[in-house]
């Protein structure tokens, strides 16, 4: 496993911080937050209030579990982060960009900073694992000669090199999810958002996927994982953000799935 090949973002070059960014509550010292939600409320056109005055800061390099029952607002929060939806009130900042003020043509660039992983994998059935991963680079205009090496790197990282030329229906659930994770990583994202990534997998395979996400986090990539899996959350003692009826009920480091 050639984990070392993924660049460590924490030591990578940082762009200069403009004075205006200081006004947005960013500090010059310490890691810059990848995600900042400030007093965010989301009301859907049908009147459903999915999120209510949510504050959340995810610093760079963090590993955050997002827990809560179905309908608590986890999916809405994720949709806000990939700018599939816009907040009704409050601001959502991703890597220093206010998503509400982002011009439409800049949205794709910001989405490339987010690697997203779904419960249902969302792989294209007519493409091999390798082609599925390369697809993410092809459709964003990456030069052809850079696609091959990047795909090889992430496939090695998730341990899929041997299955590269198999189609999704030939892969096990865990392998499909690892393909999806590789695809999420291939753009060198600032944050990986995993929406119930183990929801369709049996416990043993789930652990493998969690281990993979932890390893990616160790390499410096921020990870936000929404999950129902109480065992995993409790065992890992990472930061836990609990949503309930659109409110943040709890945000604690080293927390369990349930309130103690």
């Amino acid at each position: 496993m050639t984990i070392e090949t993924l660049p460590d973002r924490r030591r990578g070059p940082r762009r200069a911080i403009a004075p205006s960014e200081l006004d947005r509550g960013e500090s010059l010292t310490g890691p810059r937050p990848v995600v900042v939600l400030n007093n965010v409320t989301k009301t859907y056109p049908n009147g459903r209030n999915a999120l209510h005055e949510v504050d959340l800061v995810v610093p760079e390099g963090d590993f955050v579990f997002l827990v809560g029952p179905s309908g608590a607002g986890k999916s809405t929060l994720i949709r806000l982060l990939i700018r599939d939806e816009l907040a009704t009130e409050g601001t959502v900042m991703l890597d220093g960009d206010d998503l509400a003020k982002l011009p439409r043509r800049r949205v794709p660039r910001v989405r490339r900073k987010v690697g997203i992983v779904f419960q249902d994998f969302k792989l294209l059935p007519a493409k091999t694992a390798r082609e599925n991963i390369a697809f993410a680079l092809e459709v964003t205009g990456t030069a052809r000669n850079r696609i091959g090496p990047s795909v090889d790197r992430v496939m090695a990282l998730v341990g899929l090199t041997a299955q590269a030329d198999q189609y999704p229906h030939q892969l096990s659930g865990g392998e499909q999810q690892r393909t999806a994770i590789a695809r999420a990583l291939v753009h060198d994202p600032r944050i990986v958002i995993a929406d119930e990534p183990t929801g369709n997998l049996d416990p043993l395979i789930s652990w493998e996927i969690i281990q993979l996400l932890l390893r990616i986090n160790e390499l410096g990539v921020t990870v936000l994982m929404a999950t129902h899996d109480a065992d995993v959350v409790t065992a890992l003692r990472k930061r836990v953000v609990a949503l309930e009826d659109g409110h943040v009920m709890r945000d604690e480091l080293g927390g369990g799935y349930h309130r103690r």
Partner: peptide
């Protein structure tokens, strides 16, 4: 539609879609 959805999620610009 699924293909377009994936393209959007991985950050493909409108022109590429």
């Amino acid at each position: 539609a699924e293909e377009i959805e994936i393209m959007r999620l991985v950050g493909a610009s409108d022109a590429f879609i």
